[in-house]
Design a protein around this nucleic acid. Structure first.
Lengths: 228, 228
DNA sequence: CGGCGGCTTGATCGGTCTCAAGTACGGTGG
DNA sequence: CCACCGTACTTGAGACCGATCAAGCCGCCG
């Protein structure tokens, strides 16, 4: 059982087999720290860490998508954020993780020891500044997310699509990694409302929907106008 | 007009007359920094700073209550937080204020130069750590606020009352500094719904309401149970 | 005493949820 | 190759919660 708990957080073979896999020098964010990371893989829906667990590690997505979430008292799930390649997650200021984290699809992350980063920050003020800056950006992101939740369903979905477009679009088409349920739980809506709203946006020529996970932004101005 | 902009942020006489008023040595939070602060006063509903303005100063409430907010595209106002005596606000990681801030009632704050704090943090890693820690607590607060917004009206109001009780109650009775409109804009509800929900909680014996701003928690267990 | 702002209460409307089918897609086995 | 299945998604009908619109009430101050 002690085994199991460890396994859930750091599945099986990974901690040891993959610990050897050193990462290439970093491009963006947390410069030197990334040199210390090792790679880990997670299957779809696999837990990466759980709410309340000690925040031993910090993660950077190299492939796939991650969701963080809390289960509310009434059983609903609130998604706190989606993390895509290049994004850092699991970096806590306190001792424990405030949210749980799961892989959405096949995920590869770079793992760094929290304690190493913190102790480095105690000597190196640039690292300290970087930590502060990261948490500040996370704060801004959550503020934006909060503002979403007081809008109408159409506005929430439109904002979500624009955000995803900005984060993972190379063309005007995007391939969503997450399910309708994930989107719903992020936006504080039901799956049915998300679905209905999307078809509504299709009929308004704002988006195209060649398949349920594939979105084409036909009129991003109209989407933007719903909020601005 | 250049005058006016300045006046709106740092009203009239204050910057010069009060800059002399040195504060006593600090007890909690931002230790040494407080020694550098000067006092400022604001009238009810007076703007302390505006969204998008350069974040030149950091504030600590010594008396009264402050709200931060954004005006949404549709004209509604979303309140980001309430700041009570002892609370720090206006500390940004970036260059600009993300929210506007107003005095709710008669407010006295301690003002510190943002640039001084930051430059201190560049040399002193303890200060850097304190900045990070502050932003981390702010992040947790906003996360909690976000979770509020996906609950029912009763749950939101109950959580709000419990939070206020924890923050400003000496006995089981609390004197709210903010109006129903402020509460509504914090909880993402209308003033009518807040009012109705309160009377409902009265009829359920969960609270007493001797006057509209005065709340007595009669059965805080029941309030807590709405969320837990 | 009159007026005004903040709060409460009532009646109705509308958006989102709930419950219930129906449909598309991918995988598996015959 | 097709039949079958399970899962994810869409669509529909009705209920419900909170918003809106509209009075009315209370406390405060002139």
């Amino acid at each position: 059982m002690l085994m199991q708990t460890q396994l859930r957080t750091f599945p099986a073979s990974q901690l040891h087999t993959n610990a050897i896999t050193r990462s290439a020098p970093a491009r963006g964010g947390f410069g030197t720290m990334e040199a210390m990371g090792s790679q880990m893989r997670f299957d779809p829906n696999e837990e990466i860490f759980g709410e309340g667990e000690p925040a031993e590690y910090v993660y950077k997505v190299t492939k796939g998508a991650v969701r963080t979430y809390k289960i509310l008292c009434d059983g609903r799930r609130q998604i706190g954020g989606f993390y895509l390649p290049g994004d850092i997650f699991g970096l806590e200021v306190g001792k424990e993780h405030q949210f749980s984290a799961e892989a959405i699809n096949d995920v590869t992350v770079l793992v760094m020891k929290h304690s190493l980063i913190v102790s480095l920050a105690e000597r190196d003020c640039d690292t300290a500044r970087e930590l502060w800056s990261f948490t500040g950006r996370e704060l801004n992101r959550v503020q934006e997310h909060l503002l979403l939740l007081v809008k109408t369903a159409q506005q929430r979905v439109a904002s979500f699509l624009l955000e995803m477009s900005a984060r993972l679009a190379t063309t005007d088409a995007i391939e969503l990694p997450m399910s309708r349920q994930d989107i719903a739980d992020y936006l504080g809506l039901t799956i049915e409302t998300v679905s209905r709203t999307m078809t509504q946006l299709v009929s308004e020529q704002a988006i195209g929907l060649p398949s349920s996970r594939r979105i084409v932004l036909r009129n991003s101005g109209a989407l933007r106008q719903l909020n601005a």
